[in-house]
């Protein structure tokens, strides 16, 4: 009996899984076809990628460290640093 239930649950799970997979595939296809049919959008995507690269991999990494996070190890020392800075 338990074996039948196991199979049944497995079947339901598999059928749900298949449905989900189909849905994911249709969403994937929707985006893929959309990206492929772009005209002006291609140029824009190149710009977006260049921009995001500059923002996250150049500016953030080399020019914009989080001062408190990088210089102090925990929240207590960060709080102390701000307290000292604001009351000096």
């Amino acid at each position: 009996m338990w074996f039948m239930n196991f199979l049944k649950r497995g079947f339901i799970w598999n059928s749900r899984k298949n449905d989900d997979m189909n849905k994911i595939k249709s969403v994937y296809d929707f985006y893929l076809k959309g990206f492929r049919s772009m005209t002006v959008g291609r140029k824009l995507w190149i710009l977006i990628i260049i921009k995001l690269f500059i923002i996250f991999f150049v500016l953030k990494l080399f020019f914009f460290p989080d001062i408190l996070k990088s210089e102090y190890g925990d929240d207590s020392t960060r709080a102390q640093a701000v307290r000292s800075a604001l009351t000096k």
Binding site: L59, F63, F64, P65, D66, L68, A79, V82, A85, L86
Partner: peptide, 12 residues
């Protein structure tokens, strides 16, 4: 980013 770098007292 600027909050974390230039305005850290404010951010905290």
């Amino acid at each position: 980013f600027e909050f974390g770098t230039n305005w850290s007292n404010y951010s905290w």
